[in-house]
């Protein structure tokens, strides 16, 4: 304990960090809650001393807004689809990586590359892979005809090309691209965490399993997964939180239109909605939407924790 006579010294040392946290973290949170309950808040009139009614109108407006439902649906769908897929894939890749000897370091680096690459840049690459360019699909100025690498591959194996993200593409095709992209983007972090967990599991458990003639599949489900459960819980919970904040990935693939050119905003998400409201100078509505999103994440995380308490061992 610091001598009470010198406590002020401790506060001085803490001050720089405290000021930053108060200004850039604590105050914005408080202000968000405040703005969410102020009707028709406007910063310019507020500076002139205008008063605003305190009520739930912002929340009502958010819920009634026609785009809100699809934003919420997109967000929830992306979460439900990408978190399990990416977690299972990451687990399998981590187990595979852990069991090979040669090239392990090299492959680890390869799998980690997406993590250190800008997600907009990755999005543009993905967009290029799925994009169809040419007279038949794009505008008249685009004369190079290609159906995109993915379609080329599909056609090579005798399939028919799919309109993934261009004018006239289906919602299903759009979501497929988004899921592939988000899963791919989410893998490295999860692989890293799970690989770290795997490497800390005592090898003797596997020797014991070997002596007892345990088959590979059973070793995975009965030994590896339970022993990895704390890491899995962490990866799933952070995955859901990240999933509910999905936005940049949509921009990465579809650009600012957030959907194919003929149906802009079709793939908008909750965070996208918040940005849109801010852009429309509706700070109140944006704050209310942020609080709704916070509520959803809170509930989902609590459910996650409740489930993991039963499933996570020791």
């Amino acid at each position: 304990m610091v001598d009470s006579k010198h406590q002020w010294k401790a506060w001085i040392y803490l001050l720089p960090a405290l000021v930053l946290i108060l200004v850039f973290t604590v105050w914005p949170i408080i202000n968000t809650v405040r703005l969410a309950f102020l009707e028709n808040y406007n910063m310019m009139t507020a500076l002139k001393g205008a008063k605003f009614n305190i009520n739930f109108n912002n929340f009502i407006k958010v819920v009634q807004y026609p785009g809100f439902k699809s934003c919420l649906l997109n967000t929830v769908l992306l979460c439900i689809l990408t978190v399990p897929i990416s977690t299972v894939l990451a687990l399998l890749i981590a187990v595979a990586l852990n069991s090979i000897k040669g090239l392990q370091k090299f492959l680890q680096t390869v799998f980690f590359l997406p993590y250190v690459t800008n997600s907009i840049a990755i999005g543009m690459v993905f967009a290029a892979m799925f994009n169809m360019v040419g007279n038949a699909y794009g505008t008249q100025n685009e004369i190079i005809v290609t159906a995109g690498i993915i379609n080329n591959i599909i056609e090579f194996f005798g399939g028919t090309r799919v309109n993934w993200i261009n004018v006239g593409s289906s919602y299903l095709a759009n979501m497929t691209v988004m899921v592939i992209y988000i899963v791919w983007n989410a893998l490295p972090f999860k692989i890293l965490i799970l690989l770290g967990g795997l490497q800390s599991i005592n090898k003797q458990y596997y020797d014991a399993a070997k002596i007892d003639g345990t088959r590979k599949g059973r070793i995975l489900t009965r030994i590896t997964v339970p022993l990895l459960s704390p890491m899995l819980a962490y990866v799933i919970i952070t995955g859901f939180i990240g999933g509910f904040k999905e936005y940049t990935s949509i921009v990465g693939i579809f650009g600012e239109k957030l959907g194919p050119a003929d149906d802009a905003g079709r793939l908008n998400t909750m965070v996208g909605y918040i940005y849109d409201s801010l852009a429309g100078k509706h700070q109140g509505r944006a704050s209310a939407a942020a609080l709704i999103l916070f509520g959803i994440i809170l509930v989902v995380t609590l459910i996650n924790l409740r489930v993991s308490k039963k499933r996570v061992h020791y």
Partner: peptide
């Protein structure tokens, strides 16, 4: 057909 008892027992902690 051998049974092996490990030095630190290697009991599965989750079972």
């Amino acid at each position: 057909g051998v049974g092996l008892v490990f030095q630190n027992y290697a009991l599965y902690p989750h079972m």
